[in-house]
């Protein structure tokens, strides 16, 4: 029988009442390492600049430039630390939720019935730290795909299994 019940908007499951789970703290080590490499490259470039560029304006103000770059790096680091705490996820019965971003915060939800396939990828570092990245692909544009970094391997496997069975059920 076809039922078309009236929906009480207030009774719908709410996104704000979902308890989002933070990703593994270990992932921050990967971020630190990546950032460290980036900063090293920037500072390395500056130092080579010191020997290669003969321009006076550059040489005179070298110390200020270095200072600015270091402050920039520090700010960047603090921001990524704060942003890291915003990386959260949740699995509901019918969908997957991922939230991220400090300056621009976004919460994306992909209904399980719309998932096309799931990919679990682990970089070398992630393998060392026992972490995994879960990529969830939909049929939409790349904007609607989800990528959850830094899940503990156990957790990632569990989620992967759960989602896979759910996806297959719905077909």
């Amino acid at each position: 029988m076809f039922i078309n019940q009236q929906i009480e908007i207030n009774n719908l499951p709410e996104i704000s009442s979902v308890e989002l789970k933070p990703i593994s703290k270990n992932y921050f080590k990967i971020i630190i390492l990546n950032k460290a490499v980036l900063y090293a490259i920037v500072i390395g470039l500056l130092i080579t600049g010191k020997f290669k560029i003969q321009e006076e304006a550059f040489q005179d103000n070298f110390i200020y430039i270095v200072g600015l770059v270091i402050i920039g790096c520090l700010l960047n680091f603090i921001l990524s630390l704060l942003a890291f705490k915003k990386r959260k996820y949740a699995i509901r019965d019918k969908d997957v939720i991922y939230s991220k971003g400090l300056l621009v915060n976004s919460i994306t939800t992909v209904p399980i019935s719309r998932i096309q396939h799931i990919e679990e990828s682990r970089s070398w570092l992630a393998r060392k730290l026992n972490l995994a990245t879960l990529k969830i692909f939909t049929a939409g544009e790349s904007g609607s795909d989800l990528k959850i970094d830094g899940l503990p391997l156990e957790e990632a496997r569990k989620i992967n299994d759960f989602l896979s069975t759910r996806v297959n059920e719905s077909i």
Binding site: V104, N105, P111
Partner: peptide
């Protein structure tokens, strides 16, 4: 036909 929904908010909008 919706594939995904996203809520977006900058720190100023918050």
């Amino acid at each position: 036909k919706i594939q995904a929904v996203k809520l977006k908010q900058t720190i100023f909008q918050k």
